Amino acid sequence: MSAEVVPLPRKRPTLDPMLSLTASGMNSVNAVILDRMQSEIPLIPRLAGHLISGGGKRLRPMLTLAGAELVGYQGARHHKLAAAVEFIHTATLLHDDVVDGSELRRGKAAANIIFGNPATVLVGDFLFSRAFELMTEDGSLKVLKILSHASAVIAEGEVSQLSAQRQISTSEEQYLHIIGAKTAALFAAASQISAVVAECSEEQERALEDYGRNLGVAFQLVDDAIDYDSDAAEMGKDQGDDFREGKMTLPVILAHARGSEEERKFWKAAIGGHRTSDEDLAHAIQLIDNHNAVEDTREKARHFAQRAIDAISIFPESKARSAMAEAAQFAVARGY
């Protein structure tokens, strides 16, 4: 009688290979960030530092560094550009928290709660300006065009999301367009510029852009799933923020589409802002669970993550390619 073969548990993907790959470069990037967030106005570095030192993954600047490793770039231009990417991202977070009235960011009180909305918006503007200083110092018109276009697209995405807020008729196609703009555009630009500074071929540049764009969509899909699938301690924000703000994210779109007439009435009232209590949130989570909407959102994220991995398959097997592939797998397996 043969012994039963027990399969080994699959290793959970982590960001560790990406962190290891980019550790040295991130030291240089962090030095630029620390230097350029300084100002003679003490409130500016205090408020900026509150968010910048708040324990974020720094995934976007890491994409610039990892892309440079992937294509064998030997210079240092990408350090300042990765810092510019992080400043753009941080500025958008500061502005987002004001727009959303957020109380938590990365497990701490959001900057707008501590410093007020006017100061938070203005420091966000300051960081945008610093990002553009870094871009112009680099001297590449192509890099400037890529990052400035991404900044405009992000703003358009945020306005589109605002327009779709509390609109139960928002479709999956509209939703994917919104997250493609507000999140994936910066992931794509951060990845693409590493190929530009390395003077790669158009094919390689496009591959890195595709990697970043698909990773960004996957990342946001999981973020939106987590809002209905995790607790605030794990997320670093209040569970149900998206629900109470009336955001039409994919778990809601799927649950609404699959729901009964009675369930659809609930969603219309909830997204319209008329049913936002803790009990309503619990009911929403139950409906989403009943219709498998979180798992299907994660499944769509896995699809985009695989597209990201496929995009960089044109490059030879390497430590960098492996780290970037695992980062895509981590993006969809994470719970925070």
Rank of each mutant, 00 (worst) to 15 (best):
V5I: 12
V6H: 09
R12M: 11
A23L: 05
S24F: 02
S24R: 10
A31Y: 02
V32G: 02
Q38Y: 01
S39A: 14
P42Y: 09
P45N: 10
G49H: 07
H50L: 08
G54F: 05
G56Y: 04
R58C: 01
P61Q: 04
T64F: 08
G67I: 09
Q74T: 13
A76F: 01
A76H: 10
A84F: 11
V85Q: 10
F87V: 04
I88N: 06
L93K: 07
E103N: 11
N117A: 08
G124C: 03
D125W: 01
A131W: 04
L134E: 08
T136I: 14
I154V: 14
A155C: 15
G157A: 12
Q161G: 10
A164T: 03
Q165D: 00
S169Q: 15
Y175V: 11
I179N: 04
G180Q: 09
T183I: 07
A185D: 08
A190E: 03
S201K: 08
E209Y: 15
D210T: 12
G216K: 01
D224L: 07
D227R: 08
E234N: 11
D242N: 09
F243P: 09
G246N: 08
K247V: 05
M248A: 13
I253Q: 09
R258V: 00
E261Q: 14
F266A: 05
F266V: 05
K268G: 15
G272P: 12
G273E: 12
R275C: 13
D278H: 11
I285L: 09
I288S: 04
T297L: 08
E299F: 07
A301I: 03
A301W: 01
D310C: 01
K319R: 08
K319Y: 02
R321H: 02
S322R: 09
A325M: 03
